[in-house]
């Protein structure tokens, strides 16, 4: 266990170092930021999907909730940015608690209900009647605190945090009990695992990570519309990234996001007109031929994937 932990820490450290120094040699910071964002989100999704089997199709709801909670903290309470980022995470966590009853549902039912919840949240935030609070359809402008470098490194901290959370879950008894629940929740509860509590913790952590990421995104872009941070595409992209790498590990979502987001930008730049077509074909091929993600190739050879 200890050895595995150290190995995983090594990966986290390498990733952190890469993203600290990469901006000095490669200056498309937005690309690097988005890369970190998608890795963090894929890891966050991994917490709930990889370890409990609940597919949060409306994961973007937490992302948007985080972006808006942080922005409102900045605009109305005049909190400093870092505190506001935390408020973003807390706001998403709160939404997670409100949506806790959804965990009663299983499989596709949960996925759909979660999707509906994220859309409902979007329509509430974007509603013109709430303009005095959320700015309604006008969107948010955080121009006064715009700071791409500070927000870049804050995003890096969130990324590291998300990976540490996954590391902790993967190598702790808590993680084992989650996997036991995923396998068979009745047997697990007979064996003394508090099923409801374990699921709730994973759910809350997952929401928290998405909220922090959303808050960083808000700070980084500084001007956004409700449709930007509640776009269903974010959910879908993150799910595809996590699956591509392989869920239930730290390395899976990381590798998935690194490869696919690079690929995504590569087609966007080199073959823009076939962007969507190639992406769709890639997803289909992936599901048909590599349903457990690319890290499963190693796992099948009995190689441990952190």
């Amino acid at each position: 266990m200890l050895k595995k932990r150290i190995g995983s820490f090594g990966i986290i450290l390498i990733i952190a170092l890469i993203f600290i120094f990469l901006p000095f040699v490669y200056n498309n910071q937005s690309f690097l930021f988005n890369m970190m964002l998608y890795i963090a989100l894929a890891e966050g999704l991994n917490i709930i999907y990889g370890f409990t089997g609940y597919l949060p199709f409306g994961y973007v709801g937490f992302f948007g909730a985080g972006a808006y909670s942080a922005s409102l903290a900045i605009l109305f309470l005049h909190f400093p940015p870092l505190l506001s980022i935390f408020i973003g995470g807390a706001g998403a966590f709160l939404v997670g608690i409100i949506l806790m009853p959804l965990l009663k549902l299983s499989g596709a039912y949960f996925a759909i209900a979660n999707l509906a919840a994220s859309q409902a949240l979007y329509y509430i935030v974007a509603n013109p009647n709430l303009e005095s609070i959320t700015h309604g359809p006008y969107g948010i402008s955080l121009a006064s605190i715009y700071n791409p470098h500070a927000s870049y490194y804050t995003m890096l901290a969130v990324l590291v945090l998300s990976m540490i959370i996954v590391l902790f879950i993967r190598t702790s008894n808590f993680g084992l009990s989650l996997l036991a629940i995923k396998e068979d929740h009745i047997t697990a509860s007979l064996a003394g695992v508090n099923v409801a509590k374990a699921r709730a913790i994973a759910w809350g952590l997952s929401a928290f990570v998405a909220g922090l990421s959303g808050a960083c995104f808000a700070w980084y872009v500084s001007v956004f519309y409700p449709g930007t941070v509640f776009s269903l595409n974010i959910s879908v992209i993150v799910i595809v990234f996590a699956l591509f790498g392989g869920i239930g590990t730290i390395a899976g979502p990381l590798v998935g996001a690194l490869i696919l987001y690079s690929f995504y930008n590569f087609i966007g730049i080199s073959a823009p007109e076939y962007f969507q077509l190639l992406y769709g074909i890639l997803i289909i091929v992936l599901v048909l031929f590599l349903p457990d993600g690319i890290t499963s190739i190693l796992q099948k050879r009995k190689i441990y994937v952190p």
Binding site: A108, L243, Q276, L277, Y279, G280, L282, I284, L286, V287
Partner: peptide, 11 residues
């Protein structure tokens, strides 16, 4: 299948 059909919809 969720993901697969999403890919199909993109195509």
């Amino acid at each position: 299948s969720f993901i697969l059909f999403f890919g199909l919809s993109q195509v």
